[in-house]
């Protein structure tokens, strides 16, 4: 397996990088990253103050999605939960790149979910959010799939995704979120 998430990120991130992280993810690392994000967005000389709340919100959801779903796969030499995460700023837009390893059998579920969300307008997203919030039991893991819906509601932009094939069973999932 020759894929290196650090190299991938270096080659694919553009604009001014505010936060960039590739490595192990756990609860404490998420706490550190969140305070780093707040600090770098607040202290940057860029005009993104008004995007701060959305950036914070979307970052929390994305990092926790990665934390809950990033797999450990000893056979493929993945011995801990790995996250790829960056925030960059370009032409008045902020872009979040979020990534984690994913097993092939999960890809269709993620793809279908994102395509379903991308097909909905603002009102439909709100209705779906409320339906899941009020009717679905949540797992110990997370919010019953509310995270991506919430990201789409908050940003108002379409989610972009990519699955990079590493071998027959293993892929690297990239989610690109744009905040305008």
């Amino acid at each position: 397996m020759s894929f290196d998430p650090k190299i991938w990120l270096n080659n694919n991130v553009s604009g001014q990088v505010l936060v960039s992280y590739v490595g192990r993810i756990d609860s404490d690392i998420i706490t550190d990253l969140i305070s780093k994000i707040e600090e770098s967005v607040t202290n940057s000389d860029l005009d993104i103050g008004k995007q701060l709340k959305i950036i914070m919100h979307v970052s929390v959801e994305s990092l926790q999605n990665i934390y809950h779903h990033s797999p450990i796969d000893v056979e493929n030499n993945i011995n801990e939960k790995i996250a790829l995460f960056s925030i960059s700023y370009n032409n008045n837009n902020s872009t979040l790149l979020c990534g984690n390893y994913i097993h092939s059998e999960k890809i269709q579920i993620v793809k279908d979910r994102i395509e379903q969300i991308n097909a909905l307008n603002k009102e439909e997203l709100k209705a779906l959010y409320k339906l899941i919030l009020n009717n679905q039991e949540f797992s110990e893991k997370g919010g019953g799939g509310l995270g991506l819906i919430d990201i789409a509601r908050k940003t108002g932009t379409k989610l972009e995704f990519n699955f990079i094939s590493l071998n027959e069973n293993l892929y690297f999932y990239i989610l690109k979120i744009t905040i305008v």
Binding site: K53, H57, E61, L133, N134, G143, D150
Partner: peptide
């Protein structure tokens, strides 16, 4: 100030 979706159900 913020709440995540995992909290949203608990707040409900």
């Amino acid at each position: 100030e913020y709440f995540n979706t995992s909290s949203s159900k608990c707040i409900l």
